[in-house]
Design a protein around this nucleic acid. Structure first.
Lengths: 144, 144
DNA sequence: ACAAATTAAATTGTATACAATATAATCTTA
DNA sequence: TAAGATTATATTGTATACAATTTAATTTGT
């Protein structure tokens, strides 16, 4: 009986651990495909958000990617230095910084267009399982 | 037709993104409960592995937690400085470093024994859904 | 209108992650 | 058995993450 006192503290009984480990594993599956472009996974997320909706404020990027300004501010600064995007203050609200892709930023999309398919091909889940996983993750993510 | 060229590059069409974001969200749900003990989520994982199986070599810890020595070596060094564990070379193979919990390391378990239940209670998934998610994550994790 | 509250970014400090490399010990094999 | 390959950690360098705080701009309440 007393044996069960710490059962929930076993790695195998926790949901958070495979979630954390699987996320890192899948992220790392992208890395080799980014080699030639030189971008990272997090930068790739920022580009995906901007390819769809540039321009975006830093705040909107934070909300979309579930990241905070402490993470995105330096990342955006680096991408600006590298010429992928530009930052501008919103004239209507000087607190807001608006991020827009440059031509170089847009053209990067061509180089990674086939990456999702390549990585998806390595994913050891059926289409049905992937769909279920997707649904459960968003349920987790959008709660509260 | 041409519209679909970049469809897979949309955040909403990717499995990796909600995986990455949900993992960070769930991890952050633990943080408030670690406040009083001063440990972090990654340190908590190391403790969970050791509470179950101390002593463990660094290599075994890396394998169990899916982390590399670049992450664990400094983390273990810090926990040793703080008195939670000790490191010793294996006399039979001087390459191997064996990590053992101290009394202080073991006693920490009492302080966090109720954390999994508390966090689990905030999880917006049914028992059935959690089970499905768990299974799919391990399928991802253990592939190859 | 104007002080207080709120908001958007940026900054600071700490803690991961991991690729790549280095180092030392052990194993392999010709 | 001795050189070469392999293995276990450690180190270096770069890039996140995020809590907490700061700064500047805007909004709110009276």
């Amino acid at each position: 009986m007393e044996e069960k006192k710490y059962d929930l503290l076993k790695l195998e009984n926790q949901l958070c651990f495979p979630l954390y480990a699987a996320a890192r594993k899948v992220t790392s599956m992208y890395t080799p495909y980014f080699r030639e472009t030189g971008i990272t996974y997090t930068q790739y997320l920022v580009f995906m958000a901007l390819w769809e909706k540039s321009p975006l404020s830093v705040r909107e990027l934070c909300r979309i990617l579930y990241l905070d300004s402490g993470t995105l501010t330096p990342l955006i600064k680096k991408l600006e230095r590298e010429g992928y995007l530009i930052k501008k203050r919103d004239p209507d609200d000087e607190r807001v910084v608006v991020v827009s892709l440059t031509d170089k930023g847009y053209s990067l999309r061509e180089n990674v267009a086939d990456v999702p398919e390549k990585v998806g091909g390595c994913m050891p889940l059926s289409a049905e399982e992937a769909k279920t996983l997707y649904r459960l993750l968003y349920k987790l993510l959008e709660a509260e």
